[in-house]
Amino acid sequence: MTETNINWVAIASHPKFVELHRAKMRFLVGLWVVGATSYFLLLIGAITAPGLFNTKIIGRLNFGYLFCLFQFVLSWAIAIYYTRKSNKEFDPLTKELVDLIIEEKFQ
């Protein structure tokens, strides 16, 4: 599997690679933190803040139940956002990098 004729260190420190990796990490970790935070807020709040979570919002539907539903919507929104961002930004950058590796290999 290992290909010794490619200078991996050079690619890993290539400005394009560094840029892609940084942008991706910031974006991915950021989204993950948003999702995880809202999930733990639900888990903890459901027990520690019954006043807020039991507030009726529409008819008999209370905040806690709607917050659960919101988690689904949030997850789907993150999934769509990520797909769009990848297709538009990350994938073209990634392709450039792969071309760069192939170029390097046959030098």
Partner: peptide, 21 residues
Amino acid sequence: GPDGFMYSVGIIISFLTILLI
């Protein structure tokens, strides 16, 4: 009641880790 729904939320949120990381 909706406590079971919190379980479901755990499942869908776990997919964020799968998707993003």
